[in-house]
Design a protein around this nucleic acid. Structure first.
Lengths: 181, 181
DNA sequence: TGCTGTGGCTAACACCGTTAGCTACTGTGG
DNA sequence: CCACAGTAGCTAACGGTGTTAGCCACAGCA
């Protein structure tokens, strides 16, 4: 029962940069997020960004931390108040919805190597804990998370055959991971 | 029971290019695979590559087709001769091993948008069929594939907490997807 | 008053995928 | 046998990327 982590506060300009980066990401996707474009939206020149962040990856890491916190809240809420369908189903629905609400952000936060060292300590564990709460067991929790991430990323990348009834696929996965008495 | 698909044969130079690209990918990862580097390994200049492939993505697509065929064979073999542990476990083990044997190739073949239109027809379906054979049901098959892909990509990206016993996680997933009588 | 840190700026570097345009060589039809 | 067409190489260059170097103005403080 650890408390919700807090993000290290950022000064005005740095906060502006992260906010602008999020908007670009949400509206136009990862390809549109370039240092020159980001700088333009903030109203400065690209090299000036490096007065606030050492690298583009650092800007992305700041966004990832925000996303982990926001999605973590949603997932904790989902398992805290599961509906009639049970915590696993409730968690999966919340996870799926959160990802689809902002695909580019989801991709950023879950693809490629994880900037574990540069994230606020405890954030990663806390954000993943709902999967443990829903399953009651660490290995099942990781397996369920793998299923959820696999589903989402494969759907976003349009890797399922066209016409697939993904609703039934989610249902099949939820059933597999729901302990039968 | 469809036959194994065949790849469209390529002329000498084009085959050399794909082969060289695979070697770069395997030995040094995706970042090392640039058109200039690839051309150098083949012994020509970068623009000359465009006499054989219209774009870098086309080279990658050729590799993806090869990988799908090779991994498909492995998966079909795994479900055709499952051990005592059953077809699901056999399939998951084979999938995991194939991915770990060549991470960069796995990433290329499974990440980002899928070049479905530029792949030999039938190849995609055929390569995924072992998941149906192992589960006997299309939705469960897709769910199992999602779990397997999630596990592999999260492991490759080092997203599981350090020290995780992934063997137990695979086991938990396999158990969840194995029909209990 | 002078110094120091902060946050802008322009110019430039090395690299990326890709295009334009030229030039040999190779095979084929008349 | 010669001319022509296609193939496959080349150099130069374009517009884009993240990033660095070096300069300059201003704010706050001793």
């Amino acid at each position: 029962m650890t408390a919700t982590p807090e993000l290290t506060a950022r000064s005005g300009r740095a906060a502006d940069i992260v906010a602008a980066a999020r908007i670009i990401l949400e509206k136009e996707g990862a390809d549109a997020l370039t240092m020159r474009r980001l700088a333009a939206d903030v109203g400065i020149q690209a090299p000036s960004l490096y007065k606030h962040f050492p690298t583009k990856r650092a800007v992305e890491t700041a966004i990832i931390a925000e996303v982990l916190l926001e999605v973590g809240e949603i997932l904790h809420a989902a398992v805290a108040a599961p509906g009639r369908a049970g915590p696993v189903r409730s968690l999966l629905d919340a996870y799926h919805d959160a990802a689809k609400a902002n695909p580019a952000m989801y991709r950023l936060a879950t693809s490629g190597r994880f900037p574990r060292e540069d994230l606020p300590p405890g954030l990663e564990d806390w954000a993943g804990r709902p999967f443990f709460i829903a399953t009651g067991e660490p290995w099942k929790a990781q397996a369920l998370f793998s299923f959820a991430h696999g589903m989402v990323i494969l759907e976003l990348d349009e890797r399922f055959p066209p016409g697939s009834d993904l609703g039934r696929t989610w249902k099949a996965g939820a059933a597999a991971f729901t302990s039968r008495s």
